[in-house]
Write a protein that binds this DNA or RNA. Structure first.
Length: 345
DNA sequence: AAAATTTGACCCGT
DNA sequence: ACGGGTCAAATTTT
């Protein structure tokens, strides 16, 4: 059984077992005599485990919960196979090797910013392939997170020179970064943001269609979302958009975006022509900067939020004003080939 | 020596 | 069969 598990499964089981173990430890600290700090640390670790487990499933952990259905025996000592997700009317086995959907986001950045390479977008990348793409003038490069082997981080990105404007590259980020970053470029960017007063606050534009907006807003980060996956075998609930403007932290959509799609760590000071019926909301980076601990290994929505808000500053000197950031659903294979079984055994 | 990149081969879905 | 994505050996860079 264990030998047949692929990497995600091992990671998932590992994280869940870790969480279970930590919860046990927490139980031991429930007496009033036990230290508050010890409990806090354990709670943090448990949350971290859950975050990681969810991210393996490409689920952000904050969106509306799915209808989880457990078979009668699943609360006992049964294998994870008994955990079933009920999406639509089909019962689905989490560990079946089948397609699930994860989102990706696409950004267009000018050449020379560094983001097209393996740095400058907040993460380090290792190139693992290049391919000539039919109908494209330039080859597409494939990168994965440098920490794939050491930390099992599954984030990837594809970089391709734009055909329309060869001075731009299109970067498609896929998957979550589950790695912890030794250095936090986002923090550096944040501090530079405070120095750099060109952009008193950043905005995230959420739009539901591709209607063009007349006014271009410099250094607005635009997120375009589409549900591209029309297949019936969704594992997870498709995106749903709020019909009203986003209400900060209570909004599932916002946190889902931040958590899920900016894990790629792009830097996007550029903007696209916005839409006429976009929902705008602004978040003060200063506010967010004070709202979390920077030294935390755990990837929190706040840390990602900071990343998204501050990252643009690394590219803010660019004269370019256009960025299309699309947030699409793409397919992701659960049986992702992974060649380092020694990592979890 | 280790890490990163290059590149043809291979795999898999359509 | 074809095209996109990944693997992995060879090569280059650090």
């Amino acid at each position: 059984m264990e030998k047949n598990m692929d990497f995600e499964q091992k990671t998932l089981v590992n994280e869940l077992m870790e969480g279970k173990e930590l919860a046990k430890q927490l139980m031991g600290h429930l007496q009033p005599s036990s230290s508050h700090e010890a409990r806090d640390v354990l709670v943090e670790k448990i949350l971290s485990s859950y975050e990681k487990a969810l991210s393996v499933l490409n689920w952000d952990g904050k969106s509306k919960p799915l209808a989880l259905e457990f078979s009668p025996c699943s609360f006992g000592n049964t294998s994870p196979r008994s955990v079933i997700i009920d999406q639509d009317t089909n019962h689905r086995d989490v560990f079946k090797k089948r397609k699930i959907t994860v989102r990706s986001e696409q950004v267009r950045v000018p050449l020379g910013t560094g983001a097209e390479g393996n740095l400058e977008d907040g993460h380090s990348w290792r190139k693992y392939g290049q391919k000539d793409i039919l109908g494209a003038n330039h080859p597409r490069s494939y990168f994965r997170c440098t920490h794939r082997k050491t930390q099992g981080c599954l984030a990837t990105k594809q970089v391709q020179r734009s055909d329309q404007d060869p001075s731009f590259v299109d970067i498609t980020y896929k998957g979550h970064h589950t790695c912890r970053r030794a250095s936090q470029p986002a923090i550096v960017a944040s501090s530079s943001l405070t120095k750099n007063n060109h952009f008193p606050h950043n905005e995230v534009v959420v739009k539901e269609d591709k209607i063009r907006q007349s006014q271009v807003k410099p250094f607005t980060l635009e997120v375009k979302t589409e549900d591209l996956d029309t297949r019936e075998d969704h594992m997870f609930a498709p995106f749903s958009f709020p019909s009203t403007p986003i209400e900060s932290e209570h909004n599932h959509f916002f946190s889902e975006m931040i958590e899920t799609d900016f894990a790629g760590g792009f830097s996007s000071p550029f903007i696209s022509p916005a839409t006429s019926d976009s929902a705008y909301f602004s978040v003060s980076p200063c506010h967010k900067m004070t709202s979390f601990g920077l030294a935390n290994n755990v990837q929190t929505p706040e840390s990602d939020l900071t990343e998204i808000l501050s990252a643009p500053t690394s590219l803010t000197n660019s004269p370019m004003g256009d960025l299309d950031l699309t947030l699409d659903n793409v397919d992701f294979e659960m049986n992702f080939p992974f060649d380092s079984p020694e990592f979890f055994s």
